[in-house]
Amino acid sequence: MLSIRNLYASVAGNMILKGLNLEVNTGEVHAIMGPNGAGKSTLAAILTGREGYEVTEGEIWYEGSNLLALNPAERARKGIFLSFQYPVEIPGVSMANFLKLAINEQRKSRGLPPMPAAEFLKRMREKAKLVELDASLISRSVNEGFSGGEKKRNEIFQMAMLEPTLAILDETDSGLDIDALRIVAGGVNALKNKDSATIVITHYQRLLDYIIPDFVHVLAGGKIIKSAGKELALELEEKGYEWLVS
């Protein structure tokens, strides 16, 4: 589904990714771990097409398309979703209007008519329940005045509404207490299916107690230096990253 080949990327003239390779197939959960500054968030930025990041070499293919040729909205409409490390507050834009627009733009690109209002409302209720997001938050502006935990739950709520094929969770565990972590992970697990894949970017092993990865990759110095099964996360927790990096 996703194939990253020999990716080199820079931001503000600094080369951050230096020959990164990654293959993700449907039904899989990949964890990308690594020390701070290794390029984890850069990878998320490149995959979603954030401005200011330049790919200087390599290619990314996603479901048969050259991902780098698509703009961020087109990528989203192809089913790529990013759960932000720092979700953005958007005063004056209500959650409902925002999601209605997003869903209908995505449906339009698939040749579907706008979602009927009743179905949309029903889905909002169901998915809010899934991540235990208070109904009152849904009537507010996007992320405005949400607590840190509510923002992260709102990311997973949006993911549930949009049903992506590839979900990228960028440091979703940062700033979450154990209860919130459990709820967020529960939401992610409930949305997992054989046609979709998840990339979990995290500094700590903690989240991987709840979202069990099929593969764990260590990203350091701009490339993946080790890949293994879920047991690698525990080993990293115990020994840190130094033994791999040096």
Partner: peptide, 21 residues
């Protein structure tokens, strides 16, 4: 960018933000 990552085109996203403003 946040709106774009949800499938909303840049121009529409900017319009939405200006309208809200």
């Amino acid at each position: 960018f946040y709106l774009q990552t949800r499938g909303i085109d840049k121009q529409d996203a900017e319009k939405l933000l200006l309208c809200a403003f």
